[in-house]
């Protein structure tokens, strides 16, 4: 209650540096987990056409559901790390966009965990791509969009390194 109230205030920040220091931050890990979550959704949606036994079906659903949730949660976690530890408000417009995208990834990641709709996974990938664009822009690195050469063959933002 008190924390919620005070957190709304614009307080100065004390950095508990997450710095070995490695300084290695890369938004591609957010996309990796988003795409992996989408892949798990596709696998789950295709299971009923595989002619599995009841036991085999149940087992496969359990495995892929667990993996889907793990991938979505890792996507959220890596977003929080980049958003919280790396992103700095050098550009207010980009920072506002970053806040909005990070929050969007939290919501989309949870939606992927809660149910089984391909559009939820697609939304997570789209947000991860937009987040990656803001990330690379903050580093002054150009990006382009390519299609993954593996299922789910979706579009991802890649830095031109």
């Amino acid at each position: 209650m008190l924390h919620t109230l005070l957190s709304r205030m614009d307080l100065p920040v004390a950095d508990a540096h997450c710095d070995i220091p490695c300084g290695i931050y890369d938004a591609r890990i957010v996309q990796y987990y988003a795409v992996s979550a989408l892949r798990q959704i596709d696998i789950l949606l295709s299971l009923k056409d595989k002619g599995l036994s009841d036991t085999g079906f149940a087992m496969q659903v359990a495995r892929n559901t667990a993996k889907k949730e793990e991938m979505a949660e890792k996507c959220k976690h890596e977003t929080r790390v980049i958003w919280g530890d790396f992103m700095k408000p050098k550009n207010q417009e980009d920072m506002a966009k970053c806040h909005e995208l990070a929050h969007g990834i939290m919501l989309a990641g949870s939606a992927v965990k809660q149910d089984l709709h391909r559009e939820d996974g697609e939304k997570l990938v789209a947000l991860a791509n937009d987040f990656a664009e803001v990330f690379w822009k903050s580093k002054g690195v150009e990006t382009h969009r390519v299609t993954t050469p593996y299922a789910p063959n979706c579009e991802v933002v890649e830095p031109k390194l």
Partner: peptide
């Protein structure tokens, strides 16, 4: 004075936020 913690180097004593 009030400060907000950012980063994870003080885990588990302090969490981000």
């Amino acid at each position: 004075r009030l400060f907000r913690v950012r980063g994870r180097s003080m885990l588990p004593t302090l969490r981000p936020g």
